[in-house]
């Protein structure tokens, strides 16, 4: 398989990983909240938001179908199948479009070599903002929510907090692993 073929194969594998990661983090969020998350409109610590950021930064717009499939496994809200498809489509597109726009504004290099902490912060906020708008638009279209400030704030804060919670866990894991390797 050529280099382009290898890259395509990796993108597909990574998209599958994003689906699994999103679903796993979704149910972990439900476990941490000790509540039946499928019926909750927004969580103040929504861990799967990290999968949206990771997915777009690594595989770009390939993350949209992955997030859509993941959404189908997670979105319930007591809705019918067609409404779940609609909500999943909105969930899958809002964050990637916002991150893509922010990446251009921040002059992020495609290889991510200039992904500094401050750029990462802005991208995570853009992701949360994009999802807040699209998710609540989707909810409004199925008649569940009409852009209530409380729900908008909960979506934004939950996504941002969830993203940074996972980033912190990975950061601590990488630091601990680095120390362990150095001391062995």
């Amino acid at each position: 398989m050529g280099q382009n073929g290898g890259d395509l194969q990796f993108k597909i594998q990574f998209a599958a990983l994003i689906v699994a990661l999103y679903v796993a983090l979704y149910y972990l969020t439900g476990f941490l909240h000790s509540e039946n998350l499928p019926t909750a409109v927004a969580s103040l610590l929504f861990l799967p938001a990290f999968a949206r950021l990771l997915g777009f930064l690594v595989i770009g717009y390939w993350s949209i179908p992955a997030l859509f499939i993941a959404g189908l496994f997670c979105v319930d809200l007591g809705l019918g199948f067609s409404d779940r498809i609609l909500i999943s489509a909105f969930i899958a597109t809002g964050a990637p479009l916002a991150i893509g726009t922010a990446s251009r504004l921040l002059q992020l290099q495609p290889s991510l070599t200039n992904l500094t902490p401050i750029r990462l912060l802005w991208l995570s906020l853009a992701s949360s903002f994009g999802n807040m708008v699209f998710y609540n638009t989707g909810l409004a279209l199925v008649g569940l929510n009409f852009f209530q400030p409380k729900d908008l704030a909960a979506t934004f804060i939950g996504d941002a907090a969830g993203t940074w919670a996972i980033i912190s866990v990975i950061k601590l894991s990488l630091t601990s692993w680095g120390r362990w390797v150095l001391r062995r």
Binding site: Q3, D7, F10, P110, L115, T116, I167, I170, K171
Partner: peptide, 17 residues
């Protein structure tokens, strides 16, 4: 592959936090 480089740079960015 370019995508693997992006993943590596993402992890490096997290490591630099």
């Amino acid at each position: 592959d370019f995508t693997k480089i992006k993943l590596l740079n993402f992890l490096i960015a997290l490591r630099r936090l």
